[in-house]
């Protein structure tokens, strides 16, 4: 058996995770959490599979991974790497994004996310997404502590 099978793009997401089947999902591939490099930073990996849900329509005959899907990738990464004491973070704002390079099917992406507490109930997450060709996007999201266990 191929040892890479468990982490291949498009592999079924693990059941019953906060970021998995309990919420509507734009990405069909799984976001893989990487070991943390330092305090306050988390990292993930995601490969854009050729059969990602959005690609047939973006665009027919010329697939490009949409910028908003990079935002979704960061959002999924934030939920997947949130501190254990923050089970219900809610995305309240996209503070800023800059799309700096196109992303195509087959691209392997990494996201490094720096977590900054703003006040007792708000986090700012600054993410840098890179592909094999270099920088793809900078994304800054704002989260608020939710009132229950479901993330949105």
């Amino acid at each position: 058996m191929d040892v890479l099978a468990e982490t291949r793009p498009g592999a079924p997401a693990p059941a019953a995770t906060r970021s998995g089947p309990r919420a509507a999902a734009v990405l069909s591939g799984a976001v893989e959490v990487l070991p943390s490099q330092r305090e306050g930073r988390t990292s993930t990996r995601f490969t854009v599979a050729a059969d990602e849900t959005v690609l047939p329509g973006h665009y027919p005959g010329f697939p490009i991974f949409p910028g908003v899907c990079l935002v979704e990738y960061v959002h999924r990464s934030v939920l997947a790497t949130a501190p254990a004491r923050e089970p219900g973070l809610e995305l309240v704002a996209v503070e800023s994004t800059r799309f700096t390079g196109p992303v195509y099917p087959g691209d392997a992406l990494t996201a490094d996310i720096d977590w900054k507490p703003v006040d007792g109930v708000t986090w700012q997450c600054r993410a840098k997404i890179r592909s094999g060709r270099g920088d793809a996007a900078s994304v800054r999201l704002r989260y608020r502590r939710g009132t229950d266990g479901a993330s949105a």
Partner: peptide, 12 residues
Amino acid sequence: TPEEGFGYPKPL
């Protein structure tokens, strides 16, 4: 799936 899990994805 909780009701809020049916929230339309914000990036969309």
